[in-house]
């Protein structure tokens, strides 16, 4: 039984949800509710590269908002810390 996310020759899309979480998605399967296709259909490797370059902060968006509120990004400290994640 083969994993539909591991077909090296397959065509995929990249989906994103409200939390800015990214998902690889087989092109022939319907996009689930709550997700938007932001890239593709394209060869798997192109989708991988898209995710690598566009999903930089892997914290869920709601957590990012919460943490920004708790510590307003005024000083350089916060930016520096995130840069090192």
């Amino acid at each position: 039984m083969s994993n539909p996310f591991e077909d090296l020759d397959g065509t995929y899309r990249v989906l994103v949800n409200d939390e800015n979480q990214h998902s690889l998605w087989p092109d022939l399967i319907d996009v689930p509710a709550g997700w938007t296709a932001v890239f593709g259909p394209a060869p798997r490797q192109e989708c991988i590269e898209y995710v690598e370059t566009h999903w930089v902060d892997m914290r869920p968006a709601s957590l990012v908002a919460q943490m920004d509120q708790a510590r307003p990004p005024v000083g350089a400290g916060v930016a520096q810390q995130e840069g090192e994640q």
Binding site: F5, N17, D18, L24, W25, P32, W35, W55
Partner: peptide, 18 residues
């Protein structure tokens, strides 16, 4: 991120969840 996006994928049964 890419490895995560290959394994933690959109859940077809719960909208917006992984």
């Amino acid at each position: 991120p890419a490895l995560t996006a290959e394994r933690f994928v959109a859940d077809p049964f719960r909208p917006g969840e992984r």
